[in-house]
Design a protein around this nucleic acid. Structure first.
Lengths: 122, 122
DNA sequence: CGGCATCCAGGTGGATACTG
DNA sequence: CAGTATCCACCTGGATGCCG
């Protein structure tokens, strides 16, 4: 038998947890932007676009806590804070990027399925 | 080469959308269980565990709408409804499984990072 | 500049009751 | 058995104001 995708409960829970972790509104957008190199707080905010100050702070704190980004404070006036992906953060981008590639490749199929479903169900 | 991952805004949005789509509380659990083959409603509910009737219905409807599962009704008494992954659903499981594999492989690193962060930040 | 504190609207999901 | 309908607690995230 081929090595199939895992479908026992524990593995599914692990998958579910990581997906919920990175599946919030901003996390992958922020991580994606940081994939290009270190950025300052407001620089990152402008690059992501549409994110509130509160949510960028919250998102970055969570990523820092989990070891995906580092936070470097320069005690200057005005203050400067740099955020950068860790090695772990870069590694996370690999499977996330794979999922993204799948998504881009199959948007049309999903869109077609939705239109079919919606037309059939009033 | 630093540009291993896509980090332009459009790609990140696509990734973000699919992650939010499958990043809800139950979707991957349900899809994961269905990866083993077709299942009836209550059978699936017992297999997933802890999911309410309402949420299983909602989750399955969403998956059906997007073309990830099929719903087959047998007009018997009592009624019987089978749910099964489509080809698209099976394909989705590949990148999702990859992310899950990454998650299982790195839980310890994340856990260690969290403990370090929490001990340093009161 | 890069935060934190507060308030609040909307969405998510659980509990319960009812139905063909 | 496999739903639908309703109510409600909680959480996410946006807006605003203040601060070192």
């Amino acid at each position: 038998m081929l090595l199939r995708h895992p479908h026992n409960t524990e593995d599914c829970r692990a998958v579910s947890e990581i997906l919920q972790r990175v599946g919030d509104k901003w996390t992958v957008l922020v991580v994606g932007k940081l994939g290009g190199g270190a950025m300052r707080f407001n620089e990152l905010r402008a690059a992501v676009g549409g994110i509130s100050q509160k949510m960028l702070t919250t998102t970055l704190r969570g990523l820092e806590r989990d070891g995906f980004v580092t936070r470097k404070v320069f005690p200057t006036i005005p203050p400067r804070v740099d955020y950068e992906l860790t090695e772990l953060g870069h590694e996370l981008l690999v499977p996330v990027g794979a999922l993204g590639a799948w998504a881009r490749k199959n948007t049309e199929r999903v869109k077609a399925a939705r239109e079919k479903f919606d037309s059939e169900h009033g």
